[in-house]
Design a protein around this nucleic acid. Sequence first.
DNA 1: TTTGTTAGTGTTATTTTTACACTTACTTAA
DNA 2: TTAAGTAAGTGTAAAAATAACACTAACAAA
Lengths: 247, 247
Amino acid sequence: MSALNPSLSVDCVIFGLDTKEQSLKILVYERDIFPDENSGNKNLKFPGSLVANDESLDESAYRVLKELTGLKNICLKQFRAFGDPARIKYDEEREWSERHYGVKIDRVVTIAYYALIRIDEHNPDQKLIKDKLRWINIDDSDNLAFDHSYILAKSREALQQDFIFQNVMAFELLPKKFTLQQLQSMYELILGSTFDKRNFRKKIGKAEYIVPLGEKQNGVAHKPAMLYSFEKEKFEAGREGITTFFI
Amino acid sequence: MSALNPSLSVDCVIFGLDTKEQSLKILVYERDIFPDENSGNKNLKFPGSLVANDESLDESAYRVLKELTGLKNICLKQFRAFGDPARIKYDEEREWSERHYGVKIDRVVTIAYYALIRIDEHNPDQKLIKDKLRWINIDDSDNLAFDHSYILAKSREALQQDFIFQNVMAFELLPKKFTLQQLQSMYELILGSTFDKRNFRKKIGKAEYIVPLGEKQNGVAHKPAMLYSFEKEKFEAGREGITTFFI
DNA sequence: TTTGTTAGTGTTATTTTTACACTTACTTAA
DNA sequence: TTAAGTAAGTGTAAAAATAACACTAACAAA
């Protein structure tokens, strides 16, 4: 890898869907810049790093994610660049960065990516987890390092828009076999709204790429639910231009 | 202005709606790198420049746009960063850039913005126009400089998505007083599809922020059309979260 | 006064959306 | 073995949105 460019970084907002807890979390990296107990989340940042001069932005994002979290085979999506000259807020942060990367840091523009994964499937490297990485609930994530709270807000908007428009990733989030209730609550978590059960199922019924497996849950203390799976081929096939416009 | 950062640039894709010609154009800046007559559009690039170290990306985009085109008071939207290390394709391009900016150019990541304006309202600086700037039809814009054809393709996608989701800019594109036919053809041009006249008008009828002025066109060689205007306040008011999802 | 041109309008059939409540099948604990 | 608890699963009717479709009206110019 060639030299790191001191003006360019990538940051990865990894949304993790916790199907058990029914919550949406983010993966953060912990540093020890602010020793104060009451420093809130100021020590927490998204996994990110400077970009090497010979790699593309996408390559950089995947590399950095793998190096810092061990995560691979997940789909990162670039959603925006952040370049306020004052996005490094504290001297301590600048000093930490300079120590960490071994270069003089002036102003850094970061290219932000997000991904949406299932926590119980894509486990970050366990060793790293203990040391440095944590899943935190998205609702407990005020006041992150740098401008990372702002980045988080923007990433959520991007996620929701993309999710509505092209719910591709949706099915990466569920087990191969899933129940309609799991599917619905995934939609609700990500879009931050709720749907009527019957209407939701009616809509799902029309999607020929969501197929019942004729197989049921077992071991549950209630009526067992039918299991479904997602057929990627059928999905891709039926995916054409959307011409709707909203007035 | 402080020093230019040799790793960072902004580029502005300005879409111009030509209501007379009913066409969508882009504003390009002409250089003289490739003297060959048959160099196609290789001399044409979007207005863009390196970012100064003390300005934000947005500030930079507005500054550059104004310096290179004279355009101001238009709304630029950042839509993506482009950072392939090989996006400067030809030696001639690199040399031109180094001469032009007076710095050594290695790899440059560009943050791309787009805007959608009405050609007959926002005129670029006429002097610049003659020398360097041209509106070209979007259909005649293959093989632009650098990776600018790729940037163009991505900007169109972004424009269409944004237009569907938040048709804010829509009304920046029309005269204060407009006819429904003008409105419709703007929609059709941007979204690249056609709509039934009656159904379109039915839909418009429901939008309380599009108000008839009780005033008609005159001097036209046919039945004069009612003029309408767009009421921004009413529009903003009725703008809430969209919860639809597509399955 | 005729011709050419765009404006403007209504209905019907189909599809989509929304709101809403009870029975079924299983486990667990009494 | 029975009762209690829990989530699964299901249908209907009213309202709204969409889609397809063709003629008359008002003006300018020839």
